[in-house]
Structures are given as C-alpha cells and as structure tokens.
C-alpha cells in the first residue's frame, strides 16, 4: 500500500515537472524565474512590473491554453480507455480500436462541413461515437464472444465510419477539406482558450462522475451473471459508463481530432504501477494521461523545426506496445 501511495506522489510530481517544462519550451526563451513571475502575476499584481509584455502574451495566450487542453484531453482519453477496458472486460480495448474515435470524427466532420454552427461539433461527435459503441456491443455480443470478435467488430465499425468520413471529404470544398484534414491528424497547434472553455467543462464533469463510479467498474469487469448475482443492474450501469466514456472521447476528438492509443498505453502503465483495482487505476490514469499527452505534445512541437501532429506521435508509440501486449496476452484470450 505504501508503494502504491508513493506512485501517486511520483506521478503528481511528474505532472508538475512536465507542466513547467512545457511552459518554458518554445522559440521564445524564458528563464525559470521569469516564467514563474509571469505565471503568478495575475495573482500577485506586484510581480507584473518585472515581467515583459511579450512573456505575458506568450504564456497566457499561447502556451497555457495549449498545455491545459493537452492535460484535459490526456486525462479524458485515459479515463475513457480504462473504463472501456473494464466494461468490455478486456485490457486491450480502447476508444480507438472500438471505432469510437472514427465515429466521433465522422460526426464532427459532418458538423464542420455541412452544418456549421447549427449543430455543435461536440453533439454530432457524441451521437456518432455513441452509435459506434452500440454497434460494437451488439455485433460482438455472440455467446462466448472473444477478444478476436470484439477487435474485428471494432475494425469493421472503424472502417465503416472512415468510409463515411471519406464521403464527407469528397463532398467538402477545398478550403473545408484542408481544415478537416489537418484537424483529423490530431494536433494541439490550433488550441486556444476557446477550445479549453468549450471542451474543459464537458470533460471535467464526465471525469468527476466516472471517478465516483470507479469501484463499480471492478464489478462490471466480472461476467454479467456474476455482476447480477452481486446486486448490480448490469445494463443500467454499463449505460452510465458508456455515456460518460463516450462523452469524454467525443469531446476530445471534436476539439483536437483523433489522438489514438493514449487510452491503451496509460491504463496499462497504471495497472503495472498501482495494481488492477479501478479505485486506484482511474485517478492514477487521469494524472499519468495528462502528463504523458502533454509530454508527447512537447516532443511533437520541439523535436523538429516543423510541428509533427501529436496523433501521429502517439500512434507510433502505441502500436508497437499494442502488438507486444497482444502477443503477451495470447494465452489469456484463447481461454
């Protein structure tokens, strides 16, 4: 138990370090004292005189919103990944593999290209990712449904929504197409306060309820019959989790496009460090996911002179890990 508490402190410390590192990172150089002075100047107005106008605007208009958004979305994708894994009773699933991300992307693109502000991107993304998860649930619900059928269904659902997305792209004007294409790759480069203010509350409220629900996830990860014999209304509680997890994923996709694999990597690392109990896995994943996506975004913008979309980055790390885990768990999913 001691070691597990220590892990929480360490991941919290990690988040703090990466937070300050991210604030100082960029073309405009800021020393650490300068950075801290600027950051705290809204609270202590006396600090304001010793900071430059340029530093103020770089920190508050450019870097801080981007950092906050990366943290919120890292948290969202990790929490929804961890809860979906419990729900589907399999540590290998995540919102990307199940087709939720593609569903959300199609929904969002529909809104961007055809409806504009009439139907909010978030709503349209939410509805279509909800549709994706229900298709997966229905199709893969064969008796003794294995991970193979689950993953295959996810692949099919993804392919279906990708096809729909391609149709939207085909019909889009060249200008809209360019925006769509850039957004789909998953990037924080256009992130500003607007995204933080729209996406932040949706995700934080869903995260709050999912965290309250975290112990019930343990029960949902048992067989349906066991859950029911222990007094769980399995259908209703699954719906609660699906609604919250889908809401978070779709809000994240609507804001920054598809950032895959975070929902797989983070809960795995969390379970390695704090054990399988979701009472610890969820809060730990939230902190770790924030740190790691922020770190990934730092690397994406600092590694080369041009900016790599962070979604490409997480896929390059996530896919080899997935293959490794799949190989390791062969014994498990054959049984």
């Amino acid at each position: 138990m001691k070691a597990k508490n220590l892990s929480f402190w360490l991941v919290f410390l990690l988040l703090l370090v990466i937070f300050f590192l991210s604030l100082s990172l960029g073309a405009y150089r800021l020393s650490l004292p300068e950075l801290i002075k600027t950051l705290f100047s809204p609270i202590f107005p006396s600090l304001r005189e010793s900071t430059s106008e340029a530093a103020q605007s770089i920190i508050f208009q450019i870097r801080l919103p981007r950092i906050l958004l990366a943290m919120i979305i890292g948290c969202a994708l990790s929490l929804s990944g961890a809860s979906l894994q419990a729900l589907f009773r399999n540590p290998l699933v995540n919102e990307y593999l199940l087709g939720l991300s593609s569903g959300a992307a199609f929904g969002a693109s529909l809104s961007i290209v055809f409806f504009g502000p009439k139907i909010p991107v978030q709503l349209s993304a939410f509805l279509f990712s909800l549709m994706a998860v229900f298709i997966v649930l229905l199709v893969s619900r064969s008796p003794g449904g294995s991970i193979v059928s689950l993953l295959l269904t996810g692949v099919i659902v993804s392919a279906f929504f990708s096809a729909l997305l391609t149709t939207v792209e085909y019909l889009a004007s060249p200008y809209a197409l360019q925006a769509l294409f850039f957004w789909l790759m998953g990037s924080f480069s256009l992130a500003g306060w607007r995204e933080v203010i729209i996406t932040g509350p949706i995700i934080l409220i869903a995260a709050f309820f999912l965290l309250l629900f975290r112990w019930r996830l343990n029960l949902l990860s048992l067989s349906e019959e066991e859950g029911r014999s222990l007094g769980i209304n399995v259908q209703r509680e699954k719906l609660i989790v699906i609604a919250l997890a889908t809401l978070m994923t779709s809000a994240a996709v609507a804001a920054v496009g598809i950032i895959g694999w975070i929902g797989l990597i983070v809960p795995h690392l969390a379970r390695m460090m704090v054990g399988a109990d979701n009472r610890r896995v969820l809060p730990f994943s939230a902190l770790l996911g924030s740190s790691l996506l922020l770190l990934a975004d730092d690397l994406a913008r600092a590694l080369t002179s041009f900016e790599i979309p962070v979604g490409i980055f997480t896929s390059l790390i996530g896919i080899p890990l997935f293959i490794y885990l799949l190989k390791k768990s062969t014994r498990l999913w054959l049984s």
Partner: peptide
C-alpha cells in the same frame, strides 16, 4: 469466475459488498 483483470484477493472479496452500497 472469469477474470479479465488480476485483482487481489481482498479487492475481489470486497466486491461482495456491492448490494449494500449506493451507486456512486
């Protein structure tokens, strides 16, 4: 029982308390 996640014995046994606890 079918086990997707490797809970500890105590974590597993305490799940028996679900019927006595509220949803959240």
């Amino acid at each position: 029982h079918s086990l997707a996640f490797n809970y500890s014995v105590l974590e597993f046994v305490v799940m028996g308390r679900a019927a006595h606890l509220s949803l959240f």
